[in-house]
Computed example of a mutant assay.
Amino acid sequence: MIDGIGDDGLWFRIETTSAAAAARRGAERLAAQLQLGEQRTADLAIVVAELTSNLVKHADEGVLLLRPVRAEGQAGVELIAIDAGPGMADLVGSSRDGHSTAGTLGIGLGAIVRQASWFDAHSVPGRGTVLVVQVWPAGRQPAPGWAGGLVRPLTGETVSGDGFAVRIRDGRHQLLVCDGLGHGPLAAAATRAAVQAFHTAPAAPPAAIVEHLHRSLTHTRGAALAVAELDRSAGIVRYCGLGNIAGALVDEAGGRRGFVSLPGIAGHQRRTVREYDYPFDPGSIVVMHSDGVADRWQLANYPGLSSRAPLVLAAAVLRDAGVRRDDACVLAARAA
């Protein structure tokens, strides 16, 4: 945790200028703790100001997620702006200085792109916009990740019982989604234990990882969880789940094939652990989520989303299918 902001991040509901100011102060505190540097902290402040200004002026149900992001011994700041506003038909055109849809100067998106170390976005008229921005120390240019996810706590809670993790171990590209039993701190503790055990587990297929997690959670209240492995050379997704974690393979045309999870609670009850293999084509996407996300989303409803970064896809699914009465987590990964 960094100055009150853990790796899951801190959500801001951006409806007023005071909320926008709170988000900017939070970003500056996080930048100071991460030693982002004076110039990049100033650049970050510009990004936050433009993102929040857009949310206040143009968005419906606009929210901003602020969190640290790490790679290869360095840390940066990641911002994810999500809204259900009017959207933009021409996102590329809207990022050019001087473009405006509401009588403003139209420099917001252009300024964001210039200050960002990495930027990606998706927008559909009438459905809203997702913007993802990373600001890293000077000289660092991160590549888009092969997987990305986000977590949102139940309304009224400060911590989420849901979580995810991603790792590459001995060439194995593996994903974890976990839903700690119940809500609040005890559920979050179960998920933290699962994430830690996942990161320290030996390189092994998903079924062996799930067995390891089951043994590692006996001191907690338990969790539903699933592990997926993307074997790109074999063209196979290996999947093993216990409990109500949903997983699916989505092709470029938007077709979905659901994964099988067996009944059980990792750490307490598991009648059997079984791994299933699913063939995939290049360009397919694996999407996993907790039961805090309704399984009603269809990628075909989001033109162009399959070509965006996995994190952008995960954020769009969370926005449209996440439920407020439960913790929610979405994780997406590109199969190729």
Rank of each mutant, 00 (worst) to 15 (best):
Asp251Ala: 12
Gly243Ala: 09
Ala253Tyr: 02
Val227Cys: 12
His219Ser: 15
Ala253Glu: 09
Thr218Met: 05
Val286Asn: 09
His268Ile: 08
Thr218His: 06
Pro279Ala: 11
Gly235Val: 10
Arg270Thr: 13
Arg296Val: 13
Asn301Gln: 10
Leu217Arg: 01
Gly254Pro: 07
Gln298Ala: 15
Gly222Ile: 04
Val250Phe: 13
Ala300Tyr: 01
Ser284His: 14
Gly264Arg: 00
Leu318Phe: 09
Ala321Pro: 03
Ala234Tyr: 03
Asp320Val: 06
Leu299Ala: 14
Ile236Ser: 00
Arg257Lys: 03
Phe280Met: 06
Glu229Gln: 14
Pro303Leu: 09
Ser307Val: 12
Ala316Gly: 11
Ser307Gln: 14
Leu217Gly: 03
Ser284Trp: 07
Ala226Ser: 14
Ala246Leu: 09
His212Ser: 12
Arg238His: 08
Gly255Cys: 05
Glu252Gln: 15
Leu230Glu: 06
Asp295Glu: 15
Ser307Leu: 13
Asp326Glu: 09
His214Cys: 03
Ala208Asn: 08
Ser233Asn: 05
Ser216His: 05
Ala224Thr: 11
Gly241Asn: 02
Leu262Asp: 06
Gly254Lys: 01
Gln269Trp: 09
Gly322Met: 10
Leu225Asp: 08
Ala207Arg: 07
Leu213Trp: 09
Ala316Ile: 14
Val293Cys: 06
Glu275Phe: 02
Pro303Asp: 09
Arg256Ala: 07
Ala300Asp: 07
Val210Gln: 05
Leu249Asp: 06
Cys240Phe: 02
Thr272Val: 11
Asp231Cys: 01
Ala224Pro: 09
Ala246Asn: 09
His214Thr: 02
Ala228Lys: 05
Val273Lys: 06
Val227Ile: 15
Val237Met: 01
Thr272Tyr: 02
Val293Met: 08
Gly235Tyr: 04
Glu229Ser: 08
Glu211Met: 12
Val286His: 03
Pro263Gln: 00
Ala224Phe: 10
Ser284Gln: 10
Ile245Tyr: 03
Ser306Pro: 04
Ala266Thr: 04
Asp277Cys: 02
Val287His: 02
Thr272Asp: 11
Asp295Ala: 14
Ala248Leu: 14
Val323Arg: 13
Ala248Trp: 12
His268Glu: 08
Gly264His: 01
Gly267Trp: 02
Ala316Arg: 15
Val260Gly: 00
Glu252Ile: 15
Ala248Phe: 04
Val323Lys: 05
Ala228Asn: 11
Arg274Lys: 11
Ser306His: 13
Ser216Gln: 07
Ala309Gly: 06
Ala208Trp: 03
Gly264Ala: 05
Gln269His: 11
Glu211Ile: 01
Ala300His: 07
Leu299Met: 15
Gly267Val: 11
Cys240Gln: 01
Val260Met: 01
Ser290Glu: 12
Asp327Ile: 10
Cys329Thr: 14
Ala294Pro: 02
Ala248Gln: 15
Ala316Met: 15
Asn244Ala: 15
Met288Phe: 08
Phe280Arg: 06
Ser261Leu: 02
Pro303Ala: 03
Glu252Cys: 13
Thr272Ala: 14
Leu299Thr: 11
Pro263Asn: 01
Arg324His: 08
Ala328Met: 14
Gly322Asn: 07
Ile265Thr: 12
Glu252Tyr: 04
His268Asp: 10
Ser216Phe: 04
